[in-house]
């Protein structure tokens, strides 16, 4: 689905579901490629996470949406900002996997933020994309936390 022809909330959700599916497929591929057991484990976790997000979106109750979303403050450690942008084909190790995931979440955040700007006139869509952006930001933070706790254990 193209961003141009999003007219309704249902369509927007459909759009988001497609994004999650893409991610799921990507991690599936990485699982196959990875040799390192730790990396493999990470990609499995990430795949399952994306699948969970997708399911969440699929069963989303449109009417009650606004009340349900998370309002807590999201930190930004800015780790992802300075990490090398890894290409999917280069990613093999655990660290690279984490870097990729963090960058992806960051990009997703930026993407949804942009969409929210575009659909500022449509309150429903604006709300949805804002929330999605916030969600992705929080995922980015989750990734950064993991990175901070494992790779950056001594840093």
């Amino acid at each position: 689905m193209n961003t141009d022809n999003i007219q309704s909330l249902e369509q927007a959700i459909q759009f988001a579901i497609e994004r999650e599916t893409e991610a799921e497929q990507m991690y599936q591929k990485l699982i196959r490629l990875a040799e390192d057991p730790k990396a493999k484990e990470l990609f499995q976790e990430l795949r399952d996470m994306e699948a969970q997000h997708r399911q969440n979106l699929q069963t989303l109750d449109v009417t009650g949406f606004k009340e349900k979303h998370n309002q807590e403050r999201v930190y930004n450690m800015h780790i992802a900002d300075y990490l090398i942008d890894k290409k999917i084909d280069d990613v093999r190790t655990y660290q690279e996997g984490l870097m990729l995931a963090a960058r992806r979440e960051q990009m997703a955040y930026q993407y949804y933020s942009l969409l929210a700007e575009i659909y500022r006139d449509n309150p429903g869509l604006f709300e949805f994309f804002s929330v999605m952006a916030r969600e992705e930001r929080s995922h980015q933070n989750d990734m950064e936390k993991v990175y901070d706790e494992t790779v950056f254990l001594y840093n």
Partner: peptide, 26 residues
Amino acid sequence: GAIGQEADYSFIPEDIKEKIGFKSGR
């Protein structure tokens, strides 16, 4: 750089790697 290290398990054949349980790389 002295950020941290991890293990290199590449010498273990895939089938044994499958059987040995790993958790967080350990």
